[in-house]
Design a protein around this nucleic acid. Structure first.
Lengths: 214, 214
DNA sequence: GGCTGTGAACGGCTTCACAGCG
DNA sequence: CGCTGTGAAGCCGTTCACAGCC
């Protein structure tokens, strides 16, 4: 199925997992990988992997498998990670800093292009090679740098204002760590509150309840 | 439907969202809330909320709605958050620290009962009111404190070892921030790699692709 | 009349089974 | 013969529509 449009969000969310595994496999010197091996290493099923990839075209060779580097590049193209993608991080607290460090480690295809914080004490300081800028500058800086991806790691009261500024600057997707519901007609927001995640896991903690989580 | 067993994981993951909203509503002085109002405030649909709650019993009053405090308590019972639940945090880096801070803020029903790190420099220091302990002590401390819930915020190479120790200590559910696939027969693991999440969002960033995320 | 609780319809993702090709 | 690509079937969660009750 070549470009039939309407890709499941679940498929998109698995592509980075394939990407990471392909990177490892490539470093191990393997040039070809089967959906079965990829399945074993990711904990998914081989059918699911083949189906995911088939949404975007026929990347494999029947009887053989997938060319590791070729598939890696194909997935990067799909996600738009061929050139390093600039990311704006708003909030230079522990969480923002943790995220910046994360992105600096592995070659994820992403790099931190701007860091913002509303605390004057933090502004001007360096965090992960970036000078922390004032929150008032978000729209302008984001627009001029052509940043389309951002993370919100600010206290709840500032979250809506931050969203507005990022949207105004032209950002199209946001990872939101604050516990407030953020919505915007022109921005895809993925909400991810750490407390909430842990609270849900409490259900499974005692071992009495179900057994599957995400 | 009273205790029909087999609750969707999606339902469980929404319960903490209801909990937070109920807390806000209670603070605003409201004693009763309808599924419609709850839906507006959470961004979900009223049918979904009613169905979620109905899995566990009939908490509402027809024609009226749900008693705020009663429902709050009911959900806390379901999640096992009636008494404060102790959580172990492994890894006292930025991410671990961010998580600790998060849990200290709102009354989430969770509290950080132990913090571990393999770095001797960090051991003995205080982080969020807890002395950082050596990773070698995980199993023993976790078992003695009766901790059933934990978060892993350590570098990838240490992740498997950490899982083993937590499982040995009797932990039943883990929030894993490291990018390695963790599995264990007796432990529910929720994997949540920040880089992966952002990479997936890159697909939606340019605004060209689909429009829905989680 | 209003709002909950729920069977039924729907839709989307996963699993199955196999055809197609190297 | 092995492994990919894919229609079909199955499954699970969401949405719909309404019966039931206050």
């Amino acid at each position: 199925m070549i470009e039939g449009r309407k890709i499941p969000a679940a498929t998109i969310s698995r592509l980075p997992i394939y990407l990471r595994e392909l990177g490892d496999i490539n470093r191990e010197g393997e040039h070809v990988v089967s959906s079965r091996l990829l399945a074993e290493r990711t904990g998914l099923t081989s059918e699911q992997i083949r189906k995911d990839l088939a949404y975007f075209g026929a990347f494999g060779t029947r009887g053989i498998g997938y060319d590791v580097r070729h598939l890696d590049l194909a997935i990067r193209r799909i996600l738009g990670l061929t050139a390093e993608v600039p990311v704006a991080v708003v909030g230079a607290g522990h969480l923002g800093t943790a995220l910046i460090r994360h992105l600096q480690r592995r070659e994820s295809g992403l790099f931190v292009a701007a860091v913002f914080d509303s605390d004057p004490q933090k502004q001007g300081q360096r965090t992960g090679g970036q000078v922390v800028l004032a929150a008032e500058m978000i729209s302008e800086v984001v627009r001029k740098a052509g940043i389309t991806l951002a993370a919100i790691a600010v206290p709840s009261p500032s979250a809506h204002e931050t969203l507005r500024r990022l949207a105004e600057g032209g950002v199209g997707a946001i990872l939101n760590f604050s516990p407030v519901k953020l919505e915007h007609p022109r921005v895809v927001v993925k909400n991810l509150d750490l407390s909430t995640e842990l609270q849900a896991l409490a259900y499974y903690g005692p071992g009495a309840g179900g057994e599957r989580a995400g």
